[in-house]
Design a protein around this nucleic acid. Structure first.
Lengths: 110, 110
DNA sequence: AATCTTTATCGCAATATTGCAATCTGAAAA
DNA sequence: TTTTCAGATTGCAATATTGCGATAAAGATT
């Protein structure tokens, strides 16, 4: 009890949940938006941008990386993080499909 | 500490995070997909469809409703739940914007 | 080598989430 | 009214997440 029963659901469902869960925290939304805003993606200064301590930011980055939403490249002693387009596209497609199916179905009981 | 510092982030960031967090669980992904699959949205049998007990399903529905992803209509002593298109559209737009911005920017350091 | 700079990890406390048995509520049916 | 049925709520135990201070790891700089 307390642990998510991931094994009872399909791989696709778990995959979407994992991506969504990673975005389900404002700090991580802010990180993604910052990565978009910055032209160069030398990203050590995310810590300065966010109201969180360095270890906390590091952990959020780790979770985003585990979920496959961002990639990291070592560059000297700094690290270059950037968004992985594939993950974003997966989400876009997923919600796009739901949206179109909903409008064609016109289920209007609510 | 352990509480999310929502007040340090923008309303938009918190809004996206709230929606994403609600989808960030395979059971809730399964609920949404079931609501799409069923033509009529008389939805009491979600419990039969999922490998979870009734109180657990009820709580997941509550969280989806709180996040604004689904709506519920009382119909007799049953309840008709269905997806709120607006929330899905918000997510679709959000990830669509990111996707297009990424392809135009061509940031290829990773 | 000694130091600085950048990022990751450890360990902890506070809080949140997940899941369910038991129970409650309220409408329909008998 | 009593029973029944669909859902919600309560209360609890197990686990996960959030956040940060302290520290570690590793390349850069002096």
């Amino acid at each position: 009890m307390g642990a998510t029963k991931t094994d009872h659901f399909t791989d696709k469902q778990n995959a979407i949940a994992t991506l969504a869960k990673a975005i389900g925290h404002p700090a991580r939304v802010a990180i993604i938006e910052y990565l978009m805003k910055v032209d160069t993606c030398i990203c050590g200064d995310i810590v300065n941008e966010l109201p969180l301590a360095q270890p906390t930011v590091s952990q959020h980055l780790k979770e985003l990386k585990n979920a496959g939403l961002i990639k990291g490249n070592i560059e000297g002693n700094a690290i270059c993080y950037c968004i992985d387009e594939k993950a974003i596209e997966k989400l876009q497609n997923y919600f796009g499909n739901i949206s179109t199916k909903l409008t064609t179905k016109k289920n209007n009981c609510c």
